[in-house]
């Protein structure tokens, strides 16, 4: 920096800040030398230091008093405690969650069966035990038959959620699904949609355990529902970009 030239506004500001923070001695020597000689710049620095310290003080005064976060903290802690208590209570009372205790008495093969199946079995047990105590007295065979039948119609949680989301709506811009959300299959039904551009569409059918039972790709406007065992199924309509256009339900009785 040319020592004979006046300081720029930014240099003035920088020096003023250095004075206010007590770090004036740390700024560049040529600036310090200039300020020793130049009364005009020195008085400017002093004035800016004074005004800026005043403005900072005004801003501090204007700042709102700090909020007391203690009540918020206590309410959050109380909420967590409440949910924790409910969760623990739920774990102890709901048999569906006692997977670990069930697992202790089961073989390795049984243990590696899908979690869905365990959940479904537990749901059936839940349905049977508290409300129908008389049925619990039936023979083991009878229980297993009815259990299997009921198992086939129990909702798959994730697919059910998807089907609910797509009820009455579809995501494609061109493809419009005609079929209702739930098909009560009578061996002749089809899954139908409008596909004006004849784009390739994939139809996948899943059972209520989430396992794929059927898959087909078509350019058409419908696919006939294949022969399926009694139970609840879900069908997905997917376009060539792998966009999920629709999820519907099929109930085979």
């Amino acid at each position: 920096m040319d020592i004979s030239k006046h300081l720029t506004e930014e240099q003035i500001a920088f020096c003023a800040e250095a004075i206010n923070s007590g770090k004036y001695s740390s700024i560049a020597n040529n600036i310090q030398d200039h300020l020793i000689q130049c009364n005009e710049c020195a008085s400017e620095v002093v004035m800016v230091a004074e005004i800026s310290s005043e403005i900072s003080f005004e801003e501090l005064k204007k700042k709102k008093p700090q909020k007391n976060y203690k009540p918020v903290f206590y309410s959050i802690a109380a909420t967590f405690l409440l949910f924790g208590t409910i969760y623990i209570f739920h774990r102890h009372t709901n048999p569906t969650n006692n997977v670990n205790t069930i697992a202790e008495n089961k073989s390795v093969e049984e243990l590696i069966q899908p979690m869905d199946t365990i959940l479904l079995e537990n749901q059936v047990k839940e349905n049977n035990s508290p409300e129908n105590p008389t049925e619990n007295n039936n023979s083991n065979n009878k229980i297993s038959t009815s259990t299997n039948q009921q198992l086939a119609y129990i909702n798959h949680p994730q697919l059910e959620k998807l089907a609910q989301n797509y009820r009455g709506s579809y995501r494609g811009e061109e493809v419009k699904v005609i079929t209702k959300g739930l098909i009560l299959f009578n061996k002749t039904d089809s899954m139908a949609w409008q596909n004006p551009n004849l784009e390739p569409l994939t139809i996948e059918i899943y059972n209520n355990k989430g396992a794929q039972s059927y898959s087909v790709t078509t350019n058409g406007n419908s696919v006939k529902i294949p022969n399926l065992q009694n139970g609840l199924y879900y069908w997905k309509l997917i376009n060539q970009d792998y966009d999920l256009l629709f999820v519907g339900k099929i109930e085979v009785k």
């Binding site: 506004e9 240099q11 003035i12 500001a13 920088f14 003023a16 800040e17 800016v48 005004i51 800026s52």
Partner: peptide
């Protein structure tokens, strides 16, 4: 190099 508010005050 400085705070913008101080720079504005200098100007």
């Amino acid at each position: 190099k400085s705070k913008i508010t101080t720079y504005y005050i200098a100007i």
